[in-house]
Design a binder for these strands. Structure first.
Length: 506
RNA sequence: UCCCCCGUAGCUCAGUUGGUUAGAGCACCGGACUGUUAAUCCGGGUGUCGAAGGUUCAAGUCCUUCCGGGGGAGCCA
């Protein structure tokens, strides 16, 4: 038995493939079957002159997702995605398949997610899961070779780390408990024991958010380093992201091509330093008061508005032209259907563009009037990051909007040493980190100010009572990272079985 | 919790200022075509128009409420 990913080594030789039929096309005397086996996709050709009448007939009856065994030989073929195709000599059916629900035509996201167990078999999810795997492996590789110890935090917790509104409540024997929102506080304890650690586990947030950046259950990687200040933290984050992106570019060329991912920004990410800007500077840039490489956010948004308007005009003209053709009663049926489909597609795009056009003035407004001290909104992040061609790091944030454990900036008690890494191309925050407050008194006061239950934080305060040291860490949201690297619009497509508000099945 | 959009065939969607019998494509079946890339072409039938109530001579279309979905805000990774 052979695997599709290895076929290049068997050119001119006999192979046995076991897999599933994902698509079949036919012409007289010839059948083209796309076979998948988990390692890849390959076109298999059944020619009646080569395979004989009986095998050809069998091929003709194969339905989508039938499990089969093909015997055949491999030929090089530049036209195919993997560069090879298989000429089939024999076919055995292993498992039949009837009325497979996901057809080779567009489906809505709700339908696809209702069939997630089957949708995973298709090209896009397949490619995304392979990239996700590369990313996970590279994360471990990076930290292991940097001398980190993987050490996991508990999932049941007695209290909230930050705020209480977004906790999933459950029972732990006879007392209430919550699913973890972050392993960070435990990470700090483990860093005091092991020096440099990282956690890798699921995280739960009961946010009733319906946006492309949110899940109720997602995976987080949280490194924590004793004796690291925020500068060292930022250096580590940058090295880390560069390492992982480089591994993906190396190992997943085929998948990225299949996903039609333009890799320019990914190449930049590994080759160029990440701009580091303070929150103060970022605010100036968002407001359009400060230029980056001769451009401002406001100018960029204006440009976006103009190009959207142009596109709308072109579409309207094309739709009108085609509708004129459709008015002719003598038009052939086939031609009519073809043009009607085109018109429907264009109308769809038009609707989306009009929606976008409506929003741009609000984005401009939000950017211009951005108030110092606030957190960035989605459109602000998009405007800010689109001026750069790599991820950027924003540091020294207003204390009021950040978590209680972040260390104050010396001489600026209104600021804390937090860092957000913002991914380009509209993906926004993928990493949040900080240097932690190591001063016992300031930390205790901060816990009180945030109204957190002191008794649950005694163990955490112990980390400062007994040999407290400067330390830093960060959290990476795996799904947001994968979504950005694969340029997937919504995070729910980069986890095998997503859980978010309104979705618990399958 | 708030704002915007959507709910029509198994799936994706059209359906005009309310007006005769509800319209395509895909999927499925049959046929044509000897290299297709979501193949194409010809033929074949499919509906509780999300639910309830209301306005009207007449509702898929208008109004109200509810249910489900999408996008966004807030919050965040």
């Amino acid at each position: 038995m052979h695997y599709i990913e290895d076929l290049k080594q068997y050119i001119g030789q006999e192979v046995v493939l076991k897999g599933w039929v994902t698509n079949r096309r036919s012409s007289k005397g010839i059948e083209f079957i796309i076979l998948r086996d988990g390692t890849g996709f390959v076109q298999c050709v059944v020619d009646v002159n080569e395979a004989g009448e009986q095998v050809y007939e069998r091929a003709h009856r194969l339905t989508q997702e039938t499990a089969v065994e093909f015997k055949g030989y491999v030929l090089e073929d530049e036209r195919q995605l993997g560069g090879v195709e298989v000429h089939v000599r024999n076919i055995e059916v292993i498992g039949p398949s009837q009325d497979y629900p996901i057809t080779n035509k567009p489906h809505g996201i709700d339908f696809l997610l209702d069939h997630r167990h089957l949708w995973l078999r298709h090209r896009r999810p397949w490619a995304i899961m392979r990239v996700r795997n590369t990313i996970i492996f590279a994360i471990h590789q990076f930290f292991q070779q940097e001398g980190f110890v993987q050490a996991d935090a508990p999932i049941f917790t007695p209290n909230a780390v930050e705020g209480t509104t977004t906790l999933f409540e459950t029972m732990f024997y006879d007392r209430p408990a919550y699913l973890t929102q972050s392993g960070q506080l435990y990470g700090e304890a483990m860093a005091m024991a092991l020096g440099k650690i990282y956690t890798f586990g699921p995280t739960f947030r009961a946010e009733k958010s319906k946006t492309r950046r949110h899940l109720s259950e997602f995976w987080m990687i949280e490194p924590e380093m004793a004796f690291y200040d925020n500068e060292m933290n930022m250096d580590l984050i940058e090295r880390f992201i560069k390492f992982v992106v480089a591994r993906v570019l190396e190992k997943n060329k085929f998948e990225l091509e299949l996903l039609e991912r333009d890799t320019t920004i990914l190449e930049n990410t590994i080759n160029k330093p990440f701009p580091r800007i303070t929150y103060d500077e970022a605010v100036q840039i968002i407001r359009g008061e400060k230029q980056v490489k001769g451009k401002t956010t406001i100018g960029l948004l204006e440009e976006m508005k103009a190009s959207t308007e142009d596109r709308i005009k072109t579409l309207e003209k094309e739709i009108a032209e085609r509708e004129k053709i459709l008015a002719d009663p003598n038009l052939k049926q086939g031609k009519r259907n073809f043009i009607q489909n085109k018109v429907d597609t264009m109308k769809h795009e038009l609707k989306e563009l009009q929606e976008k056009l409506k929003n741009i003035p609000q984005w401009i407004d939000s950017a211009k009037n951005f108030e110092y001290g606030e957190d960035f909104g989605g459109s602000d992040e998009t405007a800010l990051t689109s001026l750069f061609d790599t991820p950027i790091m924003v540091y020294n944030w207003p204390k009021a909007i950040k978590a209680f454990y972040m260390k104050e900036v010396p001489g600026r008690p209104d600021l804390v040493k937090g860092i957000d890494v913002l991914a380009p191309e509209g993906y926004g925050e993928i990493v949040g980190g900080s240097e932690r407050e190591s001063n016992f008194d300031i930390l205790l006061e901060s816990i009180r100010k945030h109204g957190l239950p002191e008794k649950f934080f005694q163990w955490y305060l112990d980390l400062r009572r007994f040999g407290g040291v400067p330390h830093s860490g960060f959290g990476l949201g795996l799904e947001r990272f994968v979504a950005w690297i694969t340029k997937t619009y919504h995070v729910r497509e980069v986890i095998p079985f997503p859980r978010y508000y309104g979705r618990l099945e399958p």
